[in-house]
């Protein structure tokens, strides 16, 4: 028996029929064609399938899709587009934090969630926030630099807004 799932996806009210046991990852990728959310292991270990659920990072490969009923999901497609990148995305490009890019959408989303809650995180807080993401290419260094850079730029932009 298919279930009707209604939720807010990247700001839009979305309705989709799903199998009762279907995982959010499959619903996003196969039913909604949002392939920016990656499947690296399907076992909840690599973090590539990270999406934000009510602003908090969760693993779409371990989440029954029905769990997002009535809630808000943000995927990488909801964050920014080429003409108007989110500051975290800008910083990832600027610092050379992207190599193969397979972990990138998840990393970007966890970073955004961190900065939304803690605009000036310490190095250790950034590492902890990204500790559930495996990256085999970068050794994480430029990713950490990017998050710091984004934090600074976002804080400065906030400051300017405050003065205006």
């Amino acid at each position: 028996m298919m279930k009707a799932l209604t939720f807010t996806l990247n700001g839009d009210q979305t309705r989709v029929e799903v199998d009762p046991g279907e995982l959010l990852l499959d619903v996003l990728r196969r039913r909604l064609f949002l392939t920016g959310t990656k499947k690296g292991c399907g076992e909840g270990e690599c973090g590539a399938c990270t999406v934000l659920l009510d602003g908090q990072p969760v693993l779409a490969c371990l989440l029954p899709a029905m769990k997002v009923q009535g809630r808000a999901v943000t995927t990488i497609e909801g964050l920014g587009h080429e003409q108007r990148l989110h500051p975290v995305q800008e910083a990832f490009l600027e610092k050379g934090a992207v190599q193969c890019g397979f972990c990138t959408p998840g990393m970007v989303l966890s970073s955004k969630s961190l900065l939304d809650g803690q605009p000036q995180p310490s190095e250790d807080e950034i590492k902890q926030a990204l500790s559930g993401h495996l990256c085999r290419c970068t050794g994480y260094v430029q990713i950490l630099e990017a998050v710091k850079d984004a934090a600074e730029k976002m804080t400065r932009a906030e400051g300017r807004k405050g003065h205006a």
Partner: peptide
């Protein structure tokens, strides 16, 4: 900026 990077950060 790496070629193809913006496609990767936007998914």
């Amino acid at each position: 900026r790496s070629v193809g990077g913006s496609d990767k950060v936007t998914g």
